[in-house]
């Protein structure tokens, strides 16, 4: 589809883009710190990625190739509609292949394939404040970030251990960025947390309803909170993908019937499809030889 000329390039007006761009630059300069911004009304409801879309719109250029994933999948409603949105308002090329994309907007996953310096990862964030379940007052959490006073979060993790014997946080697992700011990685599974550490790609986070932007520059230390005697252990289902056989990717459990039947498949659809294609090529080669 060609660009719909009725809209400014990438939907937002230039004043809004400049405001978001200034917020992004300050976010990059202060890794992990939440920068307030004037989030605009977008043509989709809060919770559908309004923050991520505004960040992508401010960053996107005509030469970019955009990939959008929702829980790792390229073919879910949210991912398909955001891809079509930017195809229409910016006329940019879109892809489902992680390696071909220059900007990847994501909801709740980091792709399995390692990202490069030439890519930007944009996260959709529902709740940017990692302390919000522990301290509802925004003025107070701001102060806690100012003082780097994160004892409360350690107490919460300790209570998990006291109650369950292990840290029972499986997604949105809090991280420390560059040893200074406590940050919510957005609701990605804890399995993905290690990928954020010293990632070559720039990571940008946008929360539309909460009107916050934050960022992790490339090659920046991102450490998941833990204790010496209870080190961070990301959880992965003990199974292999039934479609591609991967034993290292993050798996979704899919219920297949009403008699308890279930299967595990990769959550990252591009990763899974690429592996299946490679296996078919290998098999074809084997048969030919």
């Amino acid at each position: 589809m060609n660009r719909d000329e009725a809209y400014n390039f990438a939907y937002l007006d230039e004043n809004t883009k400049r405001m978001i761009r200034r917020a992004l630059l300050k976010a990059v300069a202060i890794p992990g710190h939440q920068v307030p911004f004037g989030a605009r009304e977008m043509p989709l409801p809060y919770g559908w990625g309004t923050g991520g879309i505004q960040v992508t719109a401010a960053v996107l250029g005509a030469g970019d190739v955009l990939k959008v994933i929702d829980q790792g999948a390229d073919d879910t409603t949210n991912a398909v509609s955001i891809r079509r949105f930017f195809n229409r308002v910016a006329g940019v090329e879109t892809t489902t292949h992680t390696g071909d994309a220059t900007i990847i907007q994501t909801r709740h996953r980091i792709p399995e394939a390692a990202l490069t310096e030439a890519q930007i990862l944009v996260y959709q964030v529902p709740m940017p404040e990692p302390l919000f379940r522990l301290e509802p007052r925004l003025a107070e959490t701001k102060r806690m970030h100012a003082l780097a006073d994160y004892g409360l979060m350690h107490v919460k993790l300790y209570e998990d251990i006291a109650r369950h014997g292990h840290i029972a946080t499986s997604y949105s697992y809090p991280v420390m960025v560059d040893g200074r700011y406590l940050m919510s990685p957005s609701p990605i599974p804890a399995f993905d947390n290690p990928k954020m550490d010293r990632m070559p790609a720039l990571q940008l986070f946008g929360a539309g309803r909460e009107k916050r932007i934050y960022a992790v520059p490339p090659y920046t230390e991102v450490r998941s909170l833990d204790f010496e005697d209870h080190p961070f252990r990301p959880h992965r289902a003990n199974a292999s993908c039934e479609l591609c056989g991967s034993r290292s990717s993050y798996l979704d459990e899919v219920v297949t019937d009403d008699r308890g039947g279930r299967m595990f498949v990769c959550s990252d659809t591009d990763y899974c499809e690429t592996r299946q294609e490679d296996q078919q090529t290998e098999n074809a080669k084997g048969e030919a030889a």
Binding site: F9, E14, K17, L25, V28, V59, G61, A62, E117, L202
Partner: peptide
């Protein structure tokens, strides 16, 4: 071209601050 020129300059500034 205020839209495209500002975008490409912003990306260069973003890249400069990120690296």
């Amino acid at each position: 071209d205020p839209v495209q020129d500002a975008q490409s300059c912003f990306r260069a500034v973003l890249e400069a601050l990120s690296r």
